[in-house]
């Protein structure tokens, strides 16, 4: 099993190496064009350019194949096939790629995998390494990484760190999926600081959105909203949400995840 530290160091090394290879090939091609004709018959720049082009094509093809593989990782993780995902991510991380995107996606997927495996410390480390990079066309990964990081930090009881990650997300335009995930993470943060008013604000919309979340996340979000309503003496909302939660999930396992929710069933 690949460690987070090893993955990060490999990722950084490969980014540097990939950039060096790209610049070397482009520089060599430019030299062939600009300087080659002055060497006369001693140096055939056409052949040199052809060789450079072939090397570029082969390396691009390998990178494209790796890129195709990375597209499968999220579905493997979602299907719970962690071992297969682990093997494939490790292979992609250990293979040279000329382009940054393959490495970035692999590291991002490794962070997702570690999060799914409840290895929050490693997942947070990977997310931070990713967020430290300029992602360019893959900038949309920044939002997902921040959401994972915020969730990791909450699981590690680092509310201040989670706040920073969440606050940054308000600078972006989120997709529906990201907005749903933010709702889930943010409610988990707000109860920790006792911001019951903020949790209850816009509860109609929040409940509608929570209904679209996957069942376990939906149940936990609605349970936390029910707790906020109870704290604010809105028993109508609190009872209604609590009864929904009882239909959606096993209450004891929910209390096991967040003991503060015991208050709803006392």
């Amino acid at each position: 099993m690949i460690t987070a530290e090893h993955a990060i160091s490999r990722f950084r090394r490969d980014l540097t190496l990939g950039a060096a290879v790209r610049f070397a090939l482009l520089g060599a091609a430019l030299l062939c064009v600009l300087v080659g004709p002055f060497f006369g018959k001693r140096f055939d720049s056409t052949i040199a350019l052809f060789v450079i082009g072939m090397v570029w094509l082969v390396l691009s093809f390998r990178s494209a194949r790796n890129s195709q593989q990375t597209a499968m990782f999220p579905s493997l993780i979602a299907a719970g096939q962690y071992d297969v995902a682990e093997q494939q991510i490790e292979r992609t991380l250990n293979t040279f790629s000329m382009f940054k995107s393959v490495k970035v996606l692999s590291l991002h997927n490794l962070a997702m995998l570690r999060h799914a495996q409840n290895r929050y410390q490693e997942s947070a480390m990977l997310c931070r390494a990713l967020l430290g990079q300029r992602l360019g066309p893959l900038d949309h990964l920044t939002k997902t990484s921040r959401l994972i990081l915020a969730d990791d930090l909450l699981e590690l009881n680092d509310s201040a760190g989670a706040y920073e990650a969440i606050a940054e997300l308000y600078n972006y335009r989120l997709t529906l999926g990201e907005a749903l995930r933010l709702l889930y993470v943010e409610q988990d943060y707000l109860w920790r600081i006792g911001a019951w008013d903020r949790m209850f604000a816009g509860i109609n919309t929040k409940v509608q959105l929570a209904e679209i979340l996957p069942t376990p996340q939906s149940a936990r979000t609605q349970a936390l909203l029910s707790l906020a309503a109870k704290k604010l003496n809105r028993t109508d909302w609190s009872d209604w949400l609590r009864r929904r939660v009882e239909l959606l999930t096993d209450v004891q396992s929910l209390i096991g995840q967040r003991p503060v929710l015991r208050e709803l069933w006392n």
């Binding site: 091609a29 430019l30 062939c32 064009v33 080659g36 004709p37 055939d44 720049s45 056409t46 350019l49 052809f50 082009g53």
Partner: peptide
């Protein structure tokens, strides 16, 4: 020709 083919390649 060498110069032109280089430029075409680029």
């Amino acid at each position: 020709v060498r110069m032109l083919s280089g430029l075409i390649m680029v």
